[in-house]
Write a protein that binds this DNA or RNA. Structure first.
Length: 206
DNA sequence: AGAACGATCGACT
DNA sequence: GTCGATCGTTCTA
């Protein structure tokens, strides 16, 4: 399973946020693999971005993870009940990360559905809104602050170029997809950074 | 010690 | 579209 390299994560955060679209995220849970295709990301850059937890190189117990080496998982609690997963980017010491906002399920779907919905039936509505939000993704992958700081080049949580590299059955990549950029979600407080077009999505071409 | 707030979600009108 | 849940993090004193 060819993982994305340390060098991949060390690149510019905006480049990484775009390049991560279409890549495959794998979470090992016991002897089962949960996996999904990345379809939505956002970039956060401490150096210049008031929406970033480490804006202006602000160093606290929480932001410490953002200062660790590229290819580290930054997971934090939000609104008292949800978690968000980020991939630390840029050379070590530059606090920056890509927030994962959306996945398409590829493997372990039943387990993910149970983690997210328990025994409730998987309706069309639930299927449609399965992994389209950062809190939903973390719930479905059983990721909490206990996983904060995980090395993404390790065996528990990692990324691959495609499903073949994840040791999964290949799937046909939908042709005619394109990258859409726009303002990030939920950062209206962040003054000028509020309007930065740092949210990226894979969308079907018309 | 206390208060304000949040990179969200789901239920509801 | 609106709104409440729920608690760790951060800042102020």
């Amino acid at each position: 399973m060819a993982r994305l390299s340390r060098e991949f994560y060390a690149q510019d955060t905006l480049e990484a946020a775009r390049a991560l679209l279409g890549k495959v995220l794998v979470r090992r849970l016991g002897d089962e693999l949960l996996a999904g295709r990345i379809v939505e990301t956002e970039a956060y850059v401490g150096r210049c971005d008031k929406a970033c937890h480490a804006y202006g190189y602000r160093r606290t117990a929480r932001t410490e993870t953002l200062f660790s080496q590229p290819g580290t998982a930054y997971i934090y609690l939000i609104y008292g009940m949800y978690h968000c997963l980020n991939f630390v980017t840029e050379p070590e010491g530059e606090p920056a990360a890509v927030l994962l906002r959306g996945l398409e399920p590829l493997a372990g779907t039943e387990t993910m559905a149970r983690l997210r919905y328990g025994d409730k039936p998987l309706t069309a509505y639930r299927r449609k809104n399965f992994l389209n939000g950062p809190g939903k993704v973390c719930r479905a992958l059983a990721l909490t602050r206990a996983e904060n700081g995980l090395d993404l080049t390790g065996d528990t949580l990692f990324l691959c170029d495609g499903p073949e590299d994840a040791g999964l059955t290949p799937f046909p990549v939908p042709a005619g997809e394109t990258v859409a950029a726009g303002p990030r979600i939920g950062v209206d407080y962040a003054e000028e950074a509020r309007d930065f077009p740092w949210r990226f999505r894979l969308v079907k071409e018309e």
